[in-house]
Computed example of a mutant assay.
Amino acid sequence: MTYIREACVESIEQALVAEENGADRIELCADLDAEGLTPSRELILSAKSHLNIPIRVMIRPRAGDFVYNNAEIKQMASDIAFCKEAGVNGVVLGILKEDKTINIDAVEKLAEIGKPMKFVFHKAIDETPAILESVKSLRDLGVVNGILTSGGENTASEGIQKLKNIIALAGDMEVICAGKITTTNLEELHREINAKAYHGKRIVSGLE
């Protein structure tokens, strides 16, 4: 198997179907209609006890932008500590400043709390003014294990060239390509991009 298929799910039922149909990893969220929020602690524990594949948990306290106040960052820290205790594989989050650049200080603090879990910076990176600069700053920080991105475009297929540039820059970070990737276009995209991981709500069959 040349790449990882990460299924984005919001229930234990979806997670089990994804695992059964060949997903290599789960991103567990609540409320996918709002692009994914932090799931309940019950759901995290249930997924941990039922699944045999790695689970990464979305840490996002509310819908809307990715500029968080101190109370929200405190909530994120508490959720990350819970995930670490629950033994999940990693957490997925993104924090920006008012000017849409990455809030490096907050990322560093939250990554520290989560160690040794995997720490993935999500599609908030697609909103930053200079995506390749953002990738470099995360790479140089040395605490981020992965980036979830569609190359700053609406879909991975529109972002192919940028995704290839991001992979070339990312160093040891895993670039997880996202953006309307499904069972029908995955192989074709992989031939173009040659990434190590792909992410989607329909990345394996049975999740339609």
Rank of each mutant, 00 (worst) to 15 (best):
K164R: 15
E20T: 09
D65M: 12
L207S: 05
C177R: 02
E108A: 15
R41N: 12
C8M: 07
A130Q: 13
M58R: 06
T182Y: 03
L169N: 08
K109D: 08
F66N: 00
A156E: 04
S150T: 01
F82G: 02
E153R: 15
D140E: 15
L96N: 02
S11M: 06
F66K: 01
V91P: 09
T155Y: 12
V91G: 04
D24V: 11
K109N: 11
D140T: 13
I125A: 10
A130I: 13
V120T: 15
R25N: 05
D99T: 09
L163I: 04
L141F: 03
V144W: 03
K201D: 03
V144M: 04
I176N: 01
I55R: 04
A86I: 12
K136V: 12
G142A: 10
P116C: 09
D79I: 07
G94V: 06
L96M: 06
S46Q: 15
S49R: 13
G200Q: 03
P116M: 12
S150W: 06
A34F: 09
V57R: 00
D31E: 10
D126C: 03
D24P: 06
S134C: 04
C8W: 05
D99A: 08
I95F: 06
I55Y: 06
Q75N: 14
A15C: 08
F121D: 01
I73R: 10
A124P: 01
A124G: 00
I176H: 00
A7Y: 01
N145P: 05
V88C: 08
L43P: 06
I167H: 02
G206R: 02
G87L: 14
C8H: 03
I147C: 00
G94K: 04
C177M: 07
L138T: 03
K164N: 13
N165M: 14
D105Q: 12
G159Q: 08
A86E: 13
V204L: 09
N89R: 13
G142P: 03
V120Q: 03
K97D: 09
R56I: 14
T183E: 15
L132W: 04
G22P: 01
H199T: 06
M173Q: 10
I147M: 03
D126L: 04
A195V: 11
D79V: 05
A7D: 07
E133F: 11
I53T: 11
I73E: 10
R191M: 10
S205V: 12
A63N: 11
G64Y: 07
V92M: 02
D99V: 02
E20K: 15
K164G: 07
A197R: 05
S205H: 10
A111V: 11
L32W: 03
E27Q: 08
L189P: 00
Q75F: 14
K201R: 15
N70H: 14
A23C: 08
M58V: 10
T2L: 14
N89P: 04
M58D: 12
R56N: 13
L189N: 02
H122R: 13
P116Y: 09
E108H: 13
Q75L: 12
G22I: 04
N185H: 06
G114R: 01
L186Q: 04
Y198N: 02
